[in-house]
């Protein structure tokens, strides 16, 4: 199997949405991380942040692997978004509801990954719900409706394997129908 035929699912979303944890929750081996200490404003959200990618995989019973890649969250790393999504199977978008404007973040990432989503599919997981109820799941549905997009959206705990599996399950439903 050569590198071109690599099958991969990409996890993206803003800083602190739980991309690294979500990958760790369902992968076979602990993810390779490129996280470094945060400074400035990002420091207030978390201590470390991914600068290149998180990587892990799930081995299938026929020996093939589905690779899981996590992107950096900040827009200054958008060159990695393009690199990592190339030939990907689909996108898992995690949005941190404990952000001042989570719906703006939803718009931003859906727009930034619009081409990739058009080619494949997306599922949205809203994390850290309940810590601050700035937006409810209804609000995410309404925003997607406004955008003319019917995408799967779930409230999840990104550290829970069961919750992340639900996201993947919905993504697979979207990709195979």
């Amino acid at each position: 199997m050569n590198g071109m035929a690599q099958e991969k699912i990409i996890f993206t979303g803003p800083v602190g949405a739980g991309k690294t944890s979500a990958i760790a929750a369902i992968s076979d081996v602990p993810p390779v991380r490129t996280d470094v200490a945060c400074r400035g404003e990002e420091r207030a959200i978390k201590d470390t942040t991914t600068v290149a990618m998180d990587y892990s995989y799930i081995q299938l019973d026929d020996g093939r692997r589905v690779h899981l890649y996590g992107t950096p969250g900040q827009a200054r790393f958008d060159f990695m978004w393009e690199l990592l999504t190339r030939n990907g199977l689909g996108l898992v978008l995690l949005i941190n509801n404990d952000h001042p404007e989570p719906l703006r973040q939803l718009d931003f990432y859906l727009d930034a990954f619009a081409d990739f989503i058009r080619q494949t599919g997306v599922v949205i997981g809203v994390t850290r719900m309940g810590i601050a109820d700035r937006a409810r799941l209804d609000d995410y549905q309404a925003r997607l409706f406004e955008r003319g997009q019917v995408y799967p959206v779930f409230e999840i705990d990104g550290r829970s394997g069961d919750d992340v599996r639900i996201l993947v399950q919905a993504l697979l439903a979207v990709l195979t129908i």
Partner: peptide, 24 residues
């Protein structure tokens, strides 16, 4: 973390992109 601190780059180089790419 990919933030630019100081630069002496040729004109037309975007310091923010080079900083982010270097750290990655």
């Amino acid at each position: 973390d990919g933030m630019a601190w100081a630069q002496r780059l040729p004109a037309g180089f975007d310091q923010n992109r080079f900083a982010a790419m270097s750290s990655a």
